[in-house]
C-alpha cells in the first residue's frame, strides 16, 4: 500500500497557480506558486541601459534576485546567474541592441524547489511583458532520497534530507535540457532517471502556461 502511494507521489508535481500582470508599474509581472513556494517577478524592458553595460549587438539582460530576508549573498548571486543564463538562451536579445531588459525576482515563500519556481515565474513575467522569445522554458526539481528513491518536486524538508538535488530546465519545442543544476552525490543512472522524470513532468508545466495565457486572452478570441 505504502509503495503504491509513494509511486504516485513521485510522479506528480505540486499544484501550480499563477497570476499575470498583478503589478501595475512593470511592463510585465507574474506571481507563481508551486505548492507553498511562491516567487514574484517583474520585467522592465527594453529600456535604456547604463553606458558601461551597453552591448552593441544585443540587449543586456539583467536579473536582480531579492531574498526573503537580508541582503543577497553568494548563493543568491549564483542563483541569479543560473536564472539569467537559462532565460537569456530563450530570449531574442538581438532584437534590442543597446537596450536593457531588467528582471526582478522576489522570493515570497520557500518550501523547496525555489530555483525551479524562480525560473518558471521569470518565464511567465517575460511572456506577460510581450518580449520576443525563441521558446518557453519550464524548470523542475527532483531529489534522490537517502533510500535511493526519486522524488519529484519535493518540499523543503525533503530537499534538506535528500542525498542529491537536481533542477532541470527544459525548452518547449523539443523538450531538450537548457540548464542542469545539481547538488550532492549521485550515480549516472540516478541522474538519467531524474532527468527523464522531470522531462515528462515538464509537459504539465507547459500545459499550465498555455492555460494561463488562454485565460488571459479569453475575452479577445472569437467564440
Amino acid at each position: 500500500m505504502l509503495s503504491d502511494n509513494k509511486e504516485n507521489e513521485t510522479q506528480s508535481i505540486r499544484t501550480l497557480s499563477a497570476e499575470l500582470s498583478n503589478l501595475s508599474r512593470p511592463d510585465g509581472s507574474a506571481i507563481v506558486a508551486q505548492g507553498d513556494t511562491v516567487v514574484q517577478s517583474a520585467v522592465y524592458g527594453p529600456v535604456e541601459v547604463r553606458p558601461n553595460k551597453e552591448l552593441p549587438d544585443k540587449a543586456y539582460f539583467d536579473i536582480v534576485y531579492k531574498p526573503l530576508t537580508g541582503l543577497p549573498g553568494c548563493p543568491e548571486k549564483l542563483r541569479e546567474r543560473v536564472i539569467r543564463n537559462t532565460l537569456e538562451a530563450t530570449l531574442l536579445v538581438n532584437l534590442h541592441p543597446r537596450k536593457s531588459i531588467n528582471l526582478i525576482l522576489q522570493e515570497m515563500q520557500n518550501d523547496g524547489g525555489l530555483l525551479a519556481c524562480c525560473i518558471n515565474s521569470a518565464c511567465m513575467a517575460l511572456m506577460d511583458a510581450g518580449l520576443a522569445m525563441k521558446c518557453l522554458v519550464a524548470a523542475l526539481n527532483a531529489v534522490i532520497t537517502t533510500e535511493g528513491d526519486v522524488l519529484l518536486d519535493p518540499s523543503l524538508k525533503q530537499e534538506e534530507e535528500a542525498k542529491a538535488c537536481f533542477t532541470f530546465a527544459f525548452e518547449s519545442i523539443n523538450h531538450e535540457v537548457i540548464t542542469s543544476n545539481t547538488q550532492g552525490s549521485y550515480s549516472e543512472t540516478e541522474f538519467k532517471k531524474c532527468l527523464e522524470i522531470c522531462r515528462s513532468a515538464s509537459m504539465k508545466v507547459f500545459d499550465f502556461y498555455r492555460e494561463c495565457v488562454q485565460r488571459r486572452f479569453s475575452k479577445e478570441i472569437d467564440r
Binding site: 522569445m133 525548452e171 518547449s172 502556461y209 472569437d222
Partner: peptide, 14 residues
C-alpha cells in the same frame, strides 16, 4: 468578419 480571423492563442516557439 470573413476577411479577418482571430484564430487562436499561440505561445513562443510554436
Amino acid at each position: 468578419m470573413a476577411n479577418r480571423l482571430n484564430c487562436r492563442v499561440v505561445l513562443p516557439g510554436e
